[in-house]
Design a protein around this nucleic acid. Structure first.
Lengths: 334, 334
DNA sequence: TTGTAAGCGTTATCAT
DNA sequence: ATGATAACGCTTACAA
């Protein structure tokens, strides 16, 4: 009835517990006869090692954790997929923690992951729990930061070059002759949002065009707020001739607002969105996007983490930060 | 340097190990003074319980596993999100296993989840590993099947009524006067695919319309194959006047094929897709869909599993199968 | 109220 | 080559 243990296998095979462990774990030395008997017994009892017990003994759970905002968004689902692919190839399991950008939830996950449950952690940190993360790091837990930096934390960080990405996009608009370029930004304080806005400002500054602050709207990365912002922008006195949207969720809201108001992207107003999305090629006109190497980001983060775990004892591990380039995908919306 | 253990806390507080455990675990009895001293010591050392050790002792890891085909698909990402929401509310962690419908990968996950790592399992089983799943179940591991049944396995199963869903959709097309209705199906053998095709056949049979087998195409749930199938359908002699597509991924391929050939859904040909998707309302014309209660499915699955875990000892748990209804969302493509 | 000690199922060291 | 035994860090029954 109960699951058989090593003890049961040993008894069945007529050997000692240690012997059974050696055979099944393929270490130490044992005779061929013993091997046969143990294998037989294990087979017969349908024995499976108890992973938790092993973890305790080895102080390693072969599990990594990932703390992100929302697994059901296309971006994070792809990242998670990549991480899981890499992790499983190395025999690691993946535990996910969904925070919804809620510092409370994030803290709860970090705390439980800090209880020895995971061998390493990939985290897209909010602003709030930096001290906890630092404490975890200094206590020796391997950590990789993803998509966002943590100030003063010396861990490998995988980001996208948000500044140059949006700089490129806005420059493209400027070179097309646009002078009134609106921005639908995320939330001030979040790195990805700030950097994308910064790219906009740099492009504008470079061409010596003064930024009209009424053309900058914060929509907290939310679709509905972006819809609202877009409606306001097209209604306002100095209607922009182009809109730069700081993520794909807000791009959806913006695009829908324009559809609802029968304003045609690429004709009545130009549009570029940060982040590619599957509907970008299905809508008409298609949407010009800044593509991020999402899968690669997850892949590199996990790769980096696994290397960190492997070399955890050696102190000479040096921090490898990666800042990936984006790609401007030109389509019909501008 | 090393993480403090209960022993360290006890020593620091000047009490026994057992005492420290009682205070920190809030059970048994202890004096106020002892409580103070232990709490102080724990605080001072920044003590955290070791989750693995606790799991071993309690033979429960507060972790559940989910085995699905692809976390980066919208459907499974939403399911996973729901499961994680419910699980985390009850203090459970979620480990994900991505199979890509590969029986080998699926088996690997099932095996490791069977090593005592999880307290329960949610699985969308392929056809191959039924015996293993049954073995896991009979060994006492709580299991819930999601989206697909396992023949002869007595576990709670959360599915969608695929037959009635597609029956409703195809009947709608028939009532509109369509007689040549094509189907782009998934893979024969997979329950969701077979049932959706079955719904089609029933609707046709009910109106005594003979099924033209050249109008049935299998596209293995893949976008490109669906694209190809759609092209063939519109090129063939008896071009269908409507197409019923068995999932949203294939709907994407089909829709794109029509766009590329300048055939307008809802005008030149009617379209209904099984499964709602975010681009359905963004494309023009919008796409009519059969909506599945995806989040609810994940929610109920996890809920069911947690109840199973809670009542695992009592034998009187009865199997609660849930078959959820779909909803036909009428839009412009038909 | 408090301390002692026996496990949970492994791995790995030390004798033999 | 093999067996006995001490951990890993925790919970908890039993004694005091």
């Amino acid at each position: 009835m109960k699951k058989p243990t090593l003890k049961d296998v040993a008894k069945e095979a007529g050997v000692s517990l240690g012997m059974a462990s050696r055979v099944l774990g393929k270490y130490g030395s044992y005779s061929d006869v013993t091997k046969q008997r143990v294998m037989m017994a294990a087979e017969q009892l349908d024995y499976r090692k108890h992973a938790i017990a092993k973890s305790l003994k080895m102080s390693s759970s072969s599990t990594i954790g990932i703390v992100i905002s929302n697994i059901s968004s296309a971006f994070w689902a792809t990242v998670t997929r990549a991480v899981e692919d890499v992790a499983s190839k190395s025999g690691y399991h993946l535990i996910i923690g969904n925070t919804d950008e809620d510092p409370q939830k994030e803290r709860a996950y970090l705390e439980t992951f800090f209880e020895g449950f995971v061998d390493g952690l990939i985290v897209a940190p909010s602003q709030e729990n930096h001290t906890l993360i630092k404490k975890m790091h200094s206590s020796g837990l391997p950590i990789v930061a993803l998509d966002r930096k943590v100030q003063g934390l010396q861990v490998p960080t995988i980001t996208v070059d948000n500044i140059s990405g949006s700089y490129e996009a806005v420059s493209y608009l400027l070179n097309k002759g646009h002078r009134h370029i609106a921005v639908i930004a995320g939330s001030p304080g979040i790195m990805t949002s700030d950097h994308r806005l910064e790219g906009y400002r740099r492009a504008m500054a470079e061409q010596k065009i003064e930024v009209d602050e009424t053309l900058i709207r914060y929509a907290d990365f939310q679709k509905d707020k972006a819809y609202q912002a877009a409606v306001e922008l097209i209604d306002q006195e100095n209607r922009p001739t182009a809109i730069f949207i700081c993520n794909e969720i807000m791009a959806k809201g913006t695009y829908q607002a324009l559809q609802d108001h029968e304003i045609v992207p690429g004709k009545d107003i130009d549009l570029i969105g940060f982040g590619d999305t599957d509907w970008a090629v299905m809508v008409r006109p298609t949407l010009t996007c800044i593509r991020q190497p999402i899968y690669s980001m997850g892949l590199m983060a996990c790769d980096s983490l696994l290397r960190l775990i492997a070399n955890n004892d050696s102190e000479n591990r040096k921090i490898e930060n990666v800042c990936m380039k984006t790609e401007l995908i030109l389509r019909d919306s501008c």
